[in-house]
Design a protein around this nucleic acid. Structure first.
Length: 416
RNA sequence: GUGAGUGUAGCUCAACUGGUCAGAGCACUGGACUGUGGCUCCAGGGGUUGUGGGUUCGAGUCCCAUCACUCACCCCA
């Protein structure tokens, strides 16, 4: 083999592609009912868009980006996530001049230079949504409601919704101080990773999974006790709306996000069926990012779903069912090929999905193929039929046969 | 970036402590059924056992290196 895919990327081939199409179709349908429109942005951007947006000291920016110079020497990056690009597009295309709120969804590949494992790849696919122009917590709740609708439409159970509020630039510094104050006296109890986090981003100590840190966190000050009045009210109303929407959730005061732009609401949906990489969807509010990117002060909230993980769950749950065709057209002899070609075309013009033999196979093997193709009917054209102006048909589900006149061909099958 | 495991036909795997070991099932193709599928039976194509070295009379089997894949950590979707 001369060429292989590079590490962590993969081909998606039939019949799995039908599963992807299903996920995409359901997502588009659900988003439409919530008033979201599709936005498409480039998968490549100036590097600075991500370093500024996601945060210089985040893991994504520090070690996971596909970054390289273009021929003119500018630093470009394959997008590691979708939000930064959508915010850029929102400003660049002056979408803030349209009536608020503006709601968008996108889907497509993202790239992170990580060590691949189950459910994590270097090229992976996300479906994401972003709602701009309101800080009303009902929008946060609507988002979760939409997310739940989508996951339900995909037939997924066993999911857990966790929410939290990580405050705003007013209240977070105070909490950060309280937390570092608490941790500083207990540094010898922290794992090595957390000692690093303690210096860099103390909030991330909170979601460490190591047992030694786990116990420490029980007593740690909680951010939801340090929220300013506005954030506290926002969080309370958010939770109230979630109840109104009938969403089962738990508050996880330890959940912080790995991206710097989040404010107030954060949330995550996990599935126990996924292994270590168990997050299905995650998101939150980012009220400061549009302004940070030079746009007008515009609150926003969004989330992203990992498509590989959705497809994995869907596949485990339902298996893969490639769509069958309507008709397989079999011929007895090369002399009939051209005639069949014409008839096949006529059937297709009527909207039927039709396949025929190209290899000159025996009738038996054509029938085998018809069966495997999932066709509902096989048509057979031989010299005998040609002379009488008919085509033989066989219903593959029960083996019953009959004949149709050629000129009745498209119509005969349309009614079935 | 760290750790562990695995690499034998398209897929899933077998081959005892190194000695006809290069196999099976599935898939594919053809035939039994000279113009008919799904079941059954038969036959066939397809592998320099990831790659490169080494040990040995002899290596898929042991050793080293390398590459790839997998799982976990980190982190995340």
């Amino acid at each position: 083999m001369k060429f292989r895919t590079i590490k962590g990327v993969q081909d998606i081939t039939p019949p799995e592609t039908s599963l992807w199409q299903k996920v995409e179709a359901i997502a588009r349908r659900v988003f439409r009912t919530y008033g979201y429109s599709e936005i498409r942005t480039p998968i490549i951007e100036f590097t600075e868009l991500f370093t500024r947006g996601i945060g210089e000291t985040t893991d994504i920016v520090e070690k996971e980006m596909y970054t390289f110079p273009d021929r003119a020497g500018r630093s470009l990056t394959l997008r590691p996530e979708g939000t930064a690009s959508v915010v850029r597009a929102y400003i660049q295309n002056a979408l803030h001049t349209l009536p608020a709120p503006q709601k968008f969804y996108y889907l497509g590949p993202m790239f992170r230079y990580e060590r691949p494992q189950k459910g994590r790849y270097r090229q992976f696919h996300q479906i994401g949504v972003e709602a701009f122009g309101t800080d009303n917590p009902m929008m946060d709740a609507e988002l979760l409601d939409m997310l739940r609708s989508l996951l339900e439409a995909l037939g997924m159970g066993g999911l857990a919704f966790e929410v939290n509020s990580i405050g705003c630039p007013q209240c977070r510094p105070g909490y950060r101080e309280a937390l570092t104050g608490y941790l500083s006296g207990r540094r010898d109890h922290l794992c090595n990773d957390c000692l690093r986090r303690y210096e860099k981003n103390p909030l991330r100590v909170l979601d460490c999974k190591s047992p030694s840190c786990q116990s420490l966190k029980q007593e740690a000050p909680r951010i939801i006790d340090h929220l300013c009045d506005d954030c506290k009210e926002h969080f309370e109303r958010f939770r109230g709306y979630l109840k109104t929407a009938g969403i089962d959730f738990t508050i996880n005061p330890l959940m912080v996000r790995g991206l710097d732009y989040y404010t107030r609401t954060t949330f995550e949906v996990t599935s126990s069926d996924l292994g270590a990489q168990n997050a299905v969807a995650a998101g939150g509010r980012y009220d400061g990012l549009v302004r940070e990117f030079g746009g007008p002060d515009t609150p926003a909230v969004g989330f992203a779903l990992g498509m590989e993980r959705l497809v994995t769950l869907l596949s485990d749950r339902e298996g893969v069912h490639p769509p069958g065709i309507d008709v397989f057209f079999a011929i007895l002899g090369e002399g009939l090929r051209e005639r069949a070609f014409r008839l096949v075309k006529r059937l297709r013009s009527a909207g039927l999905s039709v396949e025929m033999d190209f290899l000159g196979s025996s009738l038996k093997s054509q029938m085998r193929r018809a069966d495997k193709s999932g066709a509902r009917y096989a048509l057979i054209l031989g010299e005998d039929e040609l002379e009488r102006g008919v085509v033989k048909y066989k219903r593959l589900s029960d083996g019953s046969q009959g004949e149709v006149r050629e000129e009745e061909l498209p119509g005969f099958f349309l009614g079935l």
